[in-house]
Write a protein that binds this DNA or RNA. Sequence first.
DNA 1: GGGTGTACGGACCGTCTCGA
DNA 2: TCGAGACGGTCCGTACACCC
Length: 340
Amino acid sequence: MPSKFKERLLSRTAGVAERAESAAAARPSESQARSATMPAQLSAFRLEARGYQERIQQLQEELEAAKRHGGAMKVPLSDLHEVPGRRRFKSPEAYAELRENLRHNALITPVAIRPRLEGGFELVSGHWRTDAYRELGRTEIDCVLSESTETEASLGAFYANLLQSDLTDYEKYLGFKDIQQRFEGITQAKMAEQAGVGEAAISRLMAYSDLPAEVLAMLDEKPGLFGATSGTALARLVRTGRSAQVIAAVQRLADKQFDETQAVKFASTDPAKEKPRPIPTAFKVKAGRSTYCDVRQAKNVVRLEFQSEEEAKAMQGALKEVLERRAAKAQTESSPDAGK
DNA sequence: GGGTGTACGGACCGTCTCGA
DNA sequence: TCGAGACGGTCCGTACACCC
């Protein structure tokens, strides 16, 4: 049976020469810059072509090695290169756990790679496993060749990241911003559809772009400094001319003097215009030792929290009757002639 | 039509408090 | 000391209005 893996790799190696030629045609060659005479240029071209032939030969040898290892191949760590924006977020604790796991156990899932025209491979996935292998002093790691194009690899890595709960909102924003730059004219609705999230979520994430450079610099340092909800609120304040207050608030947030709510409140408060706030009231209705109902009221909102859903349902009906009586009374008082 | 602002309800999680 | 409950913080989804 013909190996699909072999076909894929051969198709890649077949493309290497063509891509090399087009790439060479598109850029001013070093040999051209160095050599003005035709024989010298020809000689330089032959040298370049020989380099690509060697690369093709190398990839074919790697294919044979891969076949011997059941699809995965050993690749020197020095041949693996990272593409910016493709690395998944991982906490220091999670990374330490991964590294210790790999110290004592074999790598179960090979890292995914794509061949590079200039030699070596770019990492599609498995950045942290590769880092762990480097730290552990290993020289090679099991790899599989990814079928994806460069764009697919980047999008795949980003959308995979998006599904991780530990990716911060700011990092999600950077990913969507990157997509907007790659695909000019793409709408937020389209990105939401592709990512499988709501349009409002994308809109909230993109609000980071309205924050001042000072705030973005702090987020670069600490991507988890604040989430998209607070980011949206702060961005709104920036648009109303409160950039300085936003920067000060985020600085205090970074210094742990504020939590997110306090930071947003600080940035939005004008001390000169601050109005006295109504004081919320609360009380508990006890049934023996346990709380039957927890009541909280602030302004025109009353919240009732019962011990059980059944009791809440039962009370809803009783409350309806009370409220309807109150409403009827209020109507009578406001228009005494009503009902005559 | 696309993007944004706002309000609201609900879920989840971490921390604190209190009683057994 | 431990577990249950209380509470606060944060995020998300939905709906609707508004603006460009």
